[in-house]
Design a protein around this nucleic acid. Structure first.
Lengths: 175, 175
DNA sequence: GAGATATGTCAACAAGGCTGACTTAAAATG
DNA sequence: CATTTTAAGTCAGCCTTGTTGACATATCTC
């Protein structure tokens, strides 16, 4: 049994992938995302440095603070790195008392992660820094703009992950 | 001697920085940018791998292809990495004949960088891959959305760099 | 009790950043 | 024209953060 459909529409476009491409690549949006991300993630660097942390620590602390009780497996799924890479930074965050690891209650094999008070304070401090930049960027844009921007960013994400991210970001509900 | 100032203006807002912050950090836009960027830059990886290149090579090739005749100093300013880091990847791109380095004409100390035919082809292939993702994300968004998105991303960039990026991205002119 | 699962750990390696010191060639400047 | 500055290249070593592969332990599931 062939997987090739036997009736392909006559005028199939000559593009490489499944979608139609414009004549010219979207250089503007490609490059703007590069520069925006470059500056966006650089804000927290100075502060992280004072604590002897790097960007990897920031990512871990951020998601643990946002989702108290996160398990190792869930965190690995969010960050898409290996267990060994995660463990290196997580160990430091636990040793320096920014994150606490508790044995799971229903499943005692799991480790539930929580930000300590100190950890929460740092996470909020860094999030506020980035929020300030975001607010500056949203100022004097339409009310609708924020929505357009989130929709665009959400749709840049791999379709398979979108629902997951949506749940994580908007907290289960969202029109 | 106390570090507590003895005369604080009466109605100083309680925020940390120079701007007013909302009660809650903009977790949605912070996290969406993280996930969007993660998936966006991952597209080219497979192809780069076939050539023995990484993301660092991609960035260099991209900007050289976009701005033929770029000097080392200009490239360093765009990428914000050290000369030594750049040189490592640039050397490989030149050895493998994806980029060509010519001595400057008006200033013979400079090296003007150009993508070779092979280099240009790869740069376009990767840009098309990312453009496909962008087009998918823009589909069924208003006509105005693309504008809102670019404006937002542009305004996330450090103010000092915005004019520079604008020139680079939109090619000198742009309302 | 056997096997699967969640986590932790050891060792080695790679990519891509960094600093610091130094060289060379060419331009700019007094 | 001698000196200084500038653009680029290079050597050596280090750090962070990612990788693979192998293996250990505790706990859950069947």
């Amino acid at each position: 049994m062939s997987t090739v459909p036997d009736a392909i529409p006559a005028m199939r476009p000559p593009q490489l992938g499944s979608d139609i491409l414009p004549e010219t690549p979207a250089y503007d949006l490609i490059e703007l995302l590069f520069f925006a991300y470059r500056d966006f993630v650089s804000d927290p660097d100075r502060i992280l440095d004072e604590y002897g942390f790097g960007r990897a620590h920031h990512r871990v602390l951020h998601f643990v603070d946002r989702q108290p009780g996160l398990t190792i497996a869930e965190l690995l799924d969010i960050l898409r790195i290996t267990k060994q890479s995660l463990n290196r930074v997580l160990k430091e965050l636990i040793e320096k008392d920014f994150i606490e690891s508790r044995t799971g209650t229903s499943d005692r094999r799991q480790r539930l992660l929580f930000a300590t008070e100190q950890g929460h304070d740092l996470a909020v401090k860094l999030a506020n820094l980035q929020t300030r930049r975001i607010m500056r960027a949203l100022a004097d844009l339409d009310l609708a703009s924020k929505d357009h921007v989130s929709r665009y960013l959400l749709r840049l994400i791999d379709p398979d992950d979108r629902a997951h991210v949506e749940r994580l970001v908007f907290g289960a509900k969202k029109s």
